[in-house]
């Protein structure tokens, strides 16, 4: 009896997978054909509607993700020793930004701030400042990692890598006596690096096509049922 139920359950799961795979194939194929068809054709208009629906669905998915983030941090609040304080910082930051946005939209600021939009200023201070500082911090890690590369092991590939790094960095310097390095850098960027990046990008494109075809044909199922 139990085995029978298991078999039935397995059959149902397989049916679910088949339905999902068919939907993916239909949606993907229609979108693909629609994108390469004239925009005013039926399939072109259908693809346009699909893209709009996907955009809205992505926005809802973003909201679901942010809600999940906040719920996870809310759950961590009582555990002060396990990062509860940092969770409080996350929630307060998110609440402050939301509150400022609501006040901006309702024009609730009084006094000298009447008619002002505080949200963009806050964005400039917190978001832009923090992201710029973090991007600036990356400089130190990149230089340190290049230094560590040669300490770890010296191979011909490491030497070529470091030579390319040094040529590009030194060639960037506006030194009068080192104009030759600048020319080498320009040639390096224009010819070998263009060839290498072209090969890498074509490889990425071919990889995308391969994985895309596998997804459409149901061989790669990220939506597989548990």
């Amino acid at each position: 009896m139990q085995a029978d139920r298991k078999t039935r359950r397995r059959r149902r799961l397989k049916l679910g997978n088949a339905v999902n795979a068919t939907l993916v194939l239909a949606l993907g194929f229609t979108t693909m054909v629609g994108l390469i068809s004239p925009a005013d054709s039926t399939v072109g208009l259908t693809a346009d509607i699909f893209l709009q629906l996907a955009g809205v669905l992505a926005a809802v998915a973003v909201l679901v993700g942010v809600s999940n983030l906040l719920f996870v941090h809310l759950g961590r609040l009582p555990r002060v020793r396990k990062g509860g304080f940092y969770s409080l910082v996350v929630i307060l930051s998110a609440a402050a930004v939301t509150a400022v946005q609501v006040l901006d939209r309702t024009d609730a600021w009084g006094g000298d701030l009447e008619g002002e939009k505080v949200g963009p200023r806050l964005f400039g201070v917190i978001q832009v400042t923090l992201e710029s500082a973090l991007a600036g911090l990356v400089f130190f890690f990149l230089v340190y990692a290049a230094y560590r590369l040669m300490r770890h092991r010296v191979t011909w590939a490491n030497l070529v890598f470091l030579a390319a790094v040094l040529i590009v960095l030194v060639g960037w310097l506006p030194l009068k006596d080192w104009e030759g390095v600048g020319d080498v850098r320009d040639w390096l960027m224009e010819i070998p690096v263009t060839a290498g990046s072209r090969g890498l990008l074509i490889g990425i494109g071919l990889g995308t096509v391969t994985v895309g075809m596998r997804v459409l044909l149901g061989r790669e199922r990220a939506y597989r049922e548990p």
Binding site: G16, N20, L23, V24, L25, A26, L27, G28, F29, T30, T31, M32, G34, L35, I36, A47, F50, L51, L53, A54, L57, A58, A61, I204, G205, L206, T208, V209, G212, M213, V215, L216, A222, Y223, E225
Partner: peptide, 19 residues
């Protein structure tokens, strides 16, 4: 999974044409 299927299907179509 229905929402995921929708995103993956349309996303794959766009990615293939784009690639």
């Amino acid at each position: 999974n229905l929402g995921t299927v929708f995103m993956i299907g349309i996303g794959t179509g766009v990615a293939l044409v784009g690639a």
